[in-house]
C-alpha cells in the first residue's frame, strides 16, 4: 500500500506551538516522520551576549513560557556558582515551592491537552478549570500567573507570608481531591485506554540510547530524576516518590505525570 505523506505544519488546530512535521502514514500507522525545526529559533544565546546578568534572567525565562521556572532556576544557580555565593535557606525553600507549583500547573496542562487532542473536550475543560486554582496561588505569591520572574541572583524576589498559608493549603487540598478523580478517569475510561495504550511505544533500550530524560524516560522504566540525582535548592531535604511505569507507551508517560502530582 503506498505511503501517504501528511504535513502537520506551523498552523494546526491541535498544536499550541509552531512545529513542523511530515508524517508518513501507512493506513493509520505512522511509519516515519521528518521534523523541520527552526520555527521557534529566536537567537537567544547570542542575545544574552548583549545583556547584563540581571537582564539575562528575564530573557532566559522566555525560552519556554510554560516551564519558565526551571530555566530561571538553572541560570541563577549557574551564575551563583560562578560568583561563589549561595542563596539563604529560606530562599531555597521558596524556590522549591515555586518550582513545584510550576510542575503541577504544567502537568495539568499536559494532561488536559492530551484530552483535547484525542477529542475528549470535557476532560480538557474540567482539568483547565481546576488548573486555574494553581494560577491563583501563583498570583497570590508573585503577582503574575505564568512568567513570574521570581528568581534573582542570590535569592528570590517574593516572600511567602503566614497569611498566604490558608489559601495555599485549601487550594492544594481541593486539587488533591480532583486529581484522584482524574487519575481514575484516565485509568478506567475505555476510549482513553484504546487510544493511548500500546501507542507510541518507546522501548527501554531505545530510550537509554537516545538519552531520553524526564517523564518520557520514566514512562519507559528508566529510573532517572534530576531532583534525586543532583538535588538542587531544597530537594535534598524534601521526600518524594520517583515514579516509573514499565509499559513504555503514551499511557505510561501520562500516568507518570498524573502520579507526580
Amino acid at each position: 500500500m503506498p505511503v501517504y505523506k501528511l504535513p502537520i505544519g506551523p498552523q494546526h488546530p491541535a498544536i499550541k506551538e509552531a512545529f513542523h512535521f511530515t508524517f508518513d502514514l501507512d493506513g493509520e500507522v505512522v511509519v516515519d516522520v521528518k521534523p523541520r525545526l527552526g520555527n521557534v529559533h529566536r537567537g537567544i544565546e547570542k542575545g544574552m551576549e548583549f545583556r547584563t546578568w540581571v537582564q539575562g534572567i528575564f530573557l532566559v525565562e522566555r525560552i519556554c513560557g510554560i516551564c519558565n521556572t526551571p530555566h530561571t532556576t538553572c541560570y541563577v544557580l549557574t551564575v551563583e556558582e560562578l560568583y561563589g555565593v549561595e542563596a539563604p535557606p529560606r530562599a531555597q525553600y521558596i524556590r522549591t515551592i515555586i518550582n513545584e507549583l510550576n510542575r503541577i500547573h504544567s502537568h495539568l496542562l499536559w494532561v488536559g491537552v492530551l484530552g483535547m487532542e484525542i477529542g475528549f473536550w470535557s476532560y480538557f475543560m474540567y482539568i483547565w478549570r481546576d488548573r486555574e486554582r494553581v494560577m491563583d496561588v501563583v498570583e497570590l505569591i508573585t503577582g503574575n500567573r505564568v512568567t513570574t520572574s521570581a528568581m534573582l541572583i542570590g535569592g528570590v524576589a517574593y516572600d511567602i507570608t503566614p497569611e498566604m498559608e490558608g489559601p495555599i493549603r485549601r487550594a492544594m487540598d481541593y486539587l488533591e481531591e480532583r486529581t484522584k478523580f482524574y487519575k481514575k478517569v484516565f485509568e478506567t475510561d475505555p476510549t482513553i485506554r484504546a487510544r493511548t495504550q500500546d501507542v507510541g511505544v518507546l522501548p527501554t533500550s531505545v530510550a537509554i540510547d537516545l538519552c531520553a530524560v524526564g517523564p518520557t524516560a520514566r514512562g519507559s522504566d528508566v529510573k532517572s530524576d534530576v531532583r534525586v540525582d543532583e538535588p538542587y535548592c531544597a530537594y535534598g531535604e524534601v521526600p518524594f516518590n520517583l515514579v516509573t511505569y514499565p509499559t513504555c507507551d503514551v499511557w505510561a508517560r501520562a500516568m507518570v505525570r498524573i502520579d507526580q502530582f
Partner: peptide
C-alpha cells in the same frame, strides 16, 4: 542543510 536556521539563511554565516 539547516537544522534550526531558516532555509534562506546565507551560506557561511555562523551566528554563534
Amino acid at each position: 542543510k539547516h537544522f534550526i536556521l531558516p532555509d534562506d539563511w546565507p551560506e557561511g554565516e555562523y551566528p554563534l
